[in-house]
Design a protein around this nucleic acid. Structure first.
Length: 800
DNA sequence: AGCACGCCGACT
DNA sequence: GTCGGCGTGCTC
């Protein structure tokens, strides 16, 4: 039998199946989807069996046998293998990358080179030192000692050999348990033998009451009061034995109480019924659940999943990484208990592997997770949900550049089950598809508890400036904050920026201190008193004088969360502020701690960036302040207005979710911009119409599709030249329906010392797009790459 | 990718 | 005359 294997080598040369001989003893064991170890060239690599066949065209002398099978049960189902093929063709990636992305990293291979000692006599001293008393050593040890040339000699004279070994990282966690024998006579016999050992007799008599049970050693010590020495003696005599038991690492630290379905509103009921009706139909149908913030989308998800479970099927629930808070996961765990697995980046490799195994072994029926959870290895999916479907985190930024929404719809087609895309502010593409009837639109226009939407006030910061207010807070925001502090209500202040972006500026010559590797201003970090580059990690000490003109008139500009915090204390010394940003949430669980502290009312003001925009649901929040709505509005991206509107609507939704009415104050220098004006009414429809008009006029999605080709080189001229060639090639090979924009410099023109250019393709129907791009990539690999060019292709990029 | 094979310059 | 530099090409 012959196995078709995709090898774990991520290059285009080997991006195809290789045939291997299946050794006779494994013919009945091996299946498509198993991982195997195979010899490949001069080394051993991991590979995935994607098919089995009787014959091969490969000449026999070339055909090699599989070294080892790593899985008795396939780790990838037939569905996954098909999905990988689809990903490969639709995102233009290597098949191996598509396969790897579907598995937990614990199942990825680790490669090691082991040096084995063959002739211990006559070794040079320095080599002797490395081996010590061992028979083998690691290649890295030789490398570190700088003995690679010597090693080569030793291999030549056959004193040592080099083995390439493939290791698995994924380890099943085991604990040691004690199994008491079921045979009472055996225990009685042991008791007779132990006439002088009082403690042992005590333990044995206790064991008579617990025949056949499996207990942890600790439980036995606790119950009987004997020590480990006594237990071991008894085990040595055969009355019990140690066994190893597989356990799952438990990422949940606290117990939750069970909750039950809530009463639905009329609107919610209509939506739920449409979804459950679709479950009866054997077809993949996509719903767009468009509901204002606080309209109770989550309850619809929960009850839909309930229905899926009753039918004996499984459900996947995706949420953006950032909102995968304990608040969210607890809601699921309290409804479905042990049926839920959680997958997100906060788990360790081992924990992720265990959650994955729970799914694979059918121990759970529901997965709640971030983007990659879309690959949960269920085999009978009844429903897939993407909450906050407009979020850009659903798009993976490196290969395979897949969008979880597309994978969800693909899987729903495979399992003939519905998909729910939920959002208060759907992606324009999704809403357009719903209007066209490609998706089924479900609307929730009212908040579930009949709270009114918060009132939104736009503060014109230009006017404030004219009035002589040069602080970062408008008069109305200060007043609103003062009121909340008096009434002991809570508020959230949102800084619409990544991290906190203070930069350093010389007041004499206007120089802003830049990163030496990237065209980006360095960011001032107060805690470390350093300047950092957010893109390449470069950091330096704060200069005392301007690097350009040596002037000592250096000033820190811009507004960061730290700066805001200081300002708040100046205005309200008694206020208790909790800051939530990249700095305060670095360690594991910090996110949760801050939210819990705030939820318990131990602070008045929660101050933060993007990460507080979502999922926050505390009854006492009555004020939301957006300090600067403009920052995301002026990004060079056709989605800038959409992003801003979404963000403003999201943060506004944090206020007044329970019985106290909410107020939102948005500060801006461009109050007349439609994204800000329309965020005031939190009305999606007018925004949609307005934005669609602009998208149509400039031929952007949803009217056109876009694809992005990025080109970079250490030398500007080279980068520009090859970017030009890309544009010319595309113009020559695509239809004249397609518009090629560029080459233009990327929004960050230089990153890590590479100059970056890009070409944007806008197209409507372009059946040859993928083949043309593949030919372009082939050209790049064959020639350009040698010149130091780096090129990437992203179909449907999330940012441009 | 990573490894072997293979063909030309600086050393014993 | 050999060691070792890294260009080229293949991996079932």
């Amino acid at each position: 039998m012959i196995a078709e294997v995709i090898v774990d080598v991520s290059t285009y040369h080997v991006d195809r199946p290789f045939d291997y001989q299946v050794p006779a003893e494994w013919i009945n064991v091996i299946e498509a989807g198993c991982r195997v170890k195979v010899p490949f060239g001069a080394r051993n690599v991991l590979g995935f069996v994607i098919g089995l066949k009787k014959e091969t065209d490969i000449p026999l002398h070339k055909l090699k046998p599989i070294t080892q099978i790593l899985d008795m049960e396939p780790v990838l189902t037939e569905e996954m293998l098909q999905l990988a093929r689809w990903l490969k063709n639709h995102t233009i990636c290597y098949e191996i990358d598509a396969l790897q992305v579907m598995l937990p990293s614990a199942l990825r291979a680790k490669y090691e080179k082991i040096i084995k000692l063959q002739a211990p006599q006559s070794l040079p001293e320095e080599v002797q030192a490395i081996f010590g008393k061992r028979q083998q050593a690691n290649f890295k040890e030789f490398e570190r000692a700088g003995l690679l040339p010597l090693l080569k000699q030793l291999v030549a004279q056959e004193s040592v050999t080099i083995d390439n070994v493939v290791k698995q990282q994924g380890n099943v966690k085991e604990i040691r348990m004690v199994k008491i024998t079921e045979d009472q006579h055996l225990i009685e016999k042991v008791i007779e033998q132990s006439s002088r050992a009082v403690k042992q007799r005590l333990l044995l008599q206790w064991m008579c009451q617990h025949l056949g049970e499996v207990l942890s050693p600790q439980q036995i010590y606790d119950e009987t009061g004997v020590s480990s020495a006594v237990l071991e003696a008894v085990i040595a005599k055969g009355a019990a034995q140690f066994i190893r038991e597989e356990v799952y690492r438990d990422p949940f630290t606290k117990e939750v109480s069970r909750t039950h379905s809530l009463q639905l509103t009329e609107e919610q009921l209509v939506a739920l019924q449409a979804i459950t009706a679709a479950m009866e139909q054997p077809k993949g149908q996509t719903f767009l659940l468009h509901g204002v913030t606080g309209s109770g989308k989550t309850e619809i998800y929960l009850q839909s999943i309930q229905k899926v479970l009753e039918e004996g099927k499984e459900a996947i629930m995706l949420v953006p990484e950032i909102s995968l808070t304990p608040q969210m996961t607890e809601r699921f765990r309290s409804r479905f208990g042990e049926m839920v697995a959680v997958m997100h980046s906060g788990l360790s490799v081992g924990e992720k592997y265990d959650e994955w195994r729970k799914v694979q072994q059918g121990k759970v029926k529901v997965v709640v997770g971030a983007r990659s959870a879309i690959f949960a290895p269920f085999t009978n999916i009844g429903l897939i949900i993407l909450d906050e479907e407009h979020e850009s985190t659903y798009k993976q930024e490196d290969s395979p550049r897949y969008h979880a929404r597309d994978v969800a719809i693909w899987r729903s087609g495979f399992y003939q089950c519905p998909v729910i895309l939920g959002s208060a502010t759907p992606a324009l593409e999704s809403y357009a598809r719903a209007k066209k009837g490609v998706y089924t639109l479900l609307s929730l226009k009212h908040r579930a508890l009949h709270q009114t939407l918060p009132t939104v006030f736009i503060a014109d910061m230009r006017e404030e400036l004219r009035q002589g207010n040069r602080s970062m807070f408008s008069v109305s925001l200060i007043e609103a904050m003062r009121l909340r502090l008096e009434k002991k209500e809570q508020m959230v202040l949102f800084l619409n920026r990544r991290g906190y972006s203070s930069f350093v500026l010389c007041r004499d010559c206007g120089t802003v201190v830049q990163c030496p590797n990237c065209d980006i201003s360095l960011t001032y970090h107060r805690t470390t008193e350093k300047l950092k580059c957010h893109y390449c990690g470069y950091e330096e000490h704060i200069p005392q004088t301007c690097p350009q003109c040596q002037s000592d008139h250096i000033r820190y500009f811009g507004t960061g969360t730290q700066k805001v915090e200081e300002e708040i204390y100046k205005l309200f010394p008694e206020a208790r502020v909790l800051r939530m940003d990249v700095d305060t949430t670095r360690h594991k669980g910090a996110h949760e701690e801050i939210l819990q502290t705030f939820g318990e009312g131990q602070a008045d003001i929660l101050l933060g960036t993007q990460m507080i925009a979502k999922g926050l649901d505390f009854p006492n929040i009555t004020l939301v302040g957006v300090l600067s709505a403009d920052t995301s509005l002026h990004l060079p991206d056709y989605r800038a207005a959409e992003r801003t509107f979404q963000l403003l609507t999201q943060v506004s939704g944090r206020a007044g979710r329970h019985n106290k009415p909410g107020e939102v104050i948005i500060q801006t220098y461009t109050p007349e911009h439609y994204a800000i004006e329309l965020a005031k009414t939190q009305d999606y429809e007018p925004f949609y119409e307005r934005e669609m008009f602009l998208r149509r006029r400039s031929s952007y999605p949803p009217y056109y599709f876009v694809a992005l080709v990025q080109i970079s080189h250490e030398d500007v001229m080279m980068a520009a030249e090859y970017a030009g060639r890309v544009a010319d090639w595309l113009r020559g090979n695509l239809s004249n329906q397609a518009a090629i924009i560029g080459p233009t410099t990327a929004s960050i023109a230089r990153l890590q010392n590479r100059y970056r250019y890009q070409c944007l393709i806008k197209y409507k129907i372009e059946p040859n797009l993928i083949p043309v791009l593949q030919r372009l990539l082939a050209m790049y690999r064959a020639e350009w790459i040698k010149q130091g060019i780096l090129m990437t292709v992203d179909l449907d990029p999330s940012t441009i």
